[in-house]
Design a protein around this nucleic acid. Structure first.
Lengths: 105, 105
DNA sequence: TTGACATGCAACTATTTGGTTGCATACTTA
DNA sequence: TAAGTATGCAACCAAATAGTTGCATGTCAA
């Protein structure tokens, strides 16, 4: 899970995901054409995305196609975000209630 | 948005959010008791979370209470994750379809 | 088999980040 | 006012990360 968050933390890597979202199954060289990064830079970022299982590579002769895998995103959404979203209303209530209390602790 | 992703990338900061989720509105010193980090470390992480608007501080005399703000998480969930989740089925279809094609590009 | 293309790997540098230490400031209460 | 407590700030070090360069490997097609 940590590896997924870290993979998502970089704007370049999110741009990569966006590009694959736009056109799934691109090769490294294709990605180079659409993004303002060097090939080696993209290679490194792709490796991190693959480790996080956000991108799945598929060899096809001498071409390595890259496919988006939204599964880790679903996991984050379900197991992490929902927990906090549920606390949204409660958090606001807590905050407002505390505005006129003497002191916690 | 970038700042939120980066704030979420650190395990220590996620632990901080979890701790606040467990008991909202804690002071810095209270958080120190529950987490395995030095006060100065927590201070730094809190500053990053506050900049990302994931935590909202509220002065109360000499106590600075920290409250969770799930709004940025909602934004990520709505504007970013859903986009990819919608592509989930399509991505799988793309991948399987390409398994017997000669070549893209 | 040769040339062109697609990708991989390793080394290096620069920047960012996480963590620590020491001291300063401010509020509270006895 | 003095002691105790809550927090802030700045400097520093170590580790991780991003980005670049150069060369190697492997595939395809003429």
């Amino acid at each position: 899970m940590d590896i997924v968050f870290k993979a998502l933390a970089d704007p370049g890597r999110r741009a990569l995901l966006d590009q694959l979202h736009l056109n799934n199954g691109q090769t490294l060289t294709e990605l180079c054409r659409h993004l303002e990064m060097t090939r080696q830079g993209i290679t490194k970022h792709l490796a991190i995305l693959v480790k996080a299982n956000l991108v799945v590579p598929l060899w096809r002769g001498r071409y390595k196609l890259h496919y988006l895998n939204p599964a880790p995103l679903l996991q984050i959404s379900e197991r992490w975000l929902n927990k906090y979203e549920a606390a949204c209303v409660r958090a606001l209530a807590d905050l407002e209630r505390s505005l006129d209390e003497p002191r916690p602790n």
